[in-house]
Amino acid sequence: MDLGHDELTPQSRRIRLNGRLDLKGTGEIEARFASLTGSDSRNILVDMSGVDFLASIGMRLLLTNAKAKARQGGKMVLVAPKAMVWEALETAGLDTLIPIYADEAAALAGLSA
């Protein structure tokens, strides 16, 4: 499981995830993911396009950090999950709690709305 990040705009940070968000993959990135989402007030855009598999442990990670971000007054959104991953997110009802966008432009527009 890989994690990369960069600053998209002064107010938003992109976190790129690559690999499988199962028990092992989630464990590999959870500490860095939490520090990248919680360290400052930037909004977080999670690029999911490289995620091939997402289990409930990965959803827990996303939800926990989205909640923490919201408590800081910020937003976290998901961008471009693969179709199967998107369906799994919807099945768990996460799409009603964390906005999901098909591409980055839509996500940035959503973040600034």
Binding site: S56, M59, L63, K67, A70, A92, G93, L94, L97, I98
Partner: peptide
């Protein structure tokens, strides 16, 4: 089945496995 919470603040992470 886990009810879908009305907001992020009310959401409790976990319990999605059965649903999936």
């Amino acid at each position: 089945p886990k009810p879908i919470p009305a907001s992020l603040a009310e959401a409790r992470p976990g319990g999605h496995g059965i649903q999936l």
